[in-house]
Design a protein around this nucleic acid. Structure first.
Length: 166
DNA sequence: ATACGGATACGG
DNA sequence: CGTATCCGTATT
């Protein structure tokens, strides 16, 4: 049974709502997939940790574009991080995926395990080989909210969301 | 606590 | 140009 791909409207909402909504959804790349267990929101306003804070640049343009696309960046010389663009077109906001079930904890580890690279920069997550889908497993869970990991600026904002099984 | 290693943004 | 910084990871 094919899992339903999340529609564009899912992503065209406030970044925090998209972040919370992504927990428990299934990130699919070809044959590899897993439930999203941990995410962080990066806001378009008042968030100095967000790459989009400095405005629209070649690197950040996709964050300002239409929702439901992938923002992938290369960091620390060896890792890719996978983000999902939220908010309506023209408004910045994205969600960093930090943990995917079966692919380990840590944004660099899960992209390596799932085979996500910079070639997925700007990829449309509502079509193609890289998608996010509903889970077949729909049992309830709690969401733990904490500050984000590994940042210096705007470090106190409660924008990390972790799925906690009930 | 630190090495790793490359892209990016920004100042000159 | 140089250089500080960076949404990490593995190892000490």
């Amino acid at each position: 049974m094919a899992l339903r791909i999340l529609p564009r409207s899912f992503y065209s909402r406030r970044t925090v709502e998209v972040a919370r909504g992504l927990l428990g959804k299934v990130l699919v790349h070809g044959e590899r997939q897993g439930r999203i267990l941990e995410v962080e929101a990066y806001l378009g306003q008042g968030d100095e940790a967000a790459h989009s804070f400095r405005g629209l640049t070649p690197r950040t343009r996709v964050i300002f574009g239409p929702p439901g696309h992938a923002y992938v960046y290369f960091v620390y010389g060896m890792y890719y991080c996978f983000n999902v663009v939220a908010e309506p077109e023209g408004v910045a906001g994205c969600v960093l995926v930090r943990s995917v079930e079966g692919h380990g904890d840590g944004p660099g580890k899960l992209t390596r395990s799932l085979g996500i690279t910079v070639e997925h920069y700007g990829a449309d997550l509502t079509h193609g080989t890289l998608t996010i889908r509903e889970s077949s497993r729909q049992h309830p869970f709690a969401i733990e909210v904490t500050p984000r990991v590994g940042i210096r600026r705007s470090a106190d904002l409660p924008l990390r969301f972790v799925l906690r099984d009930r």
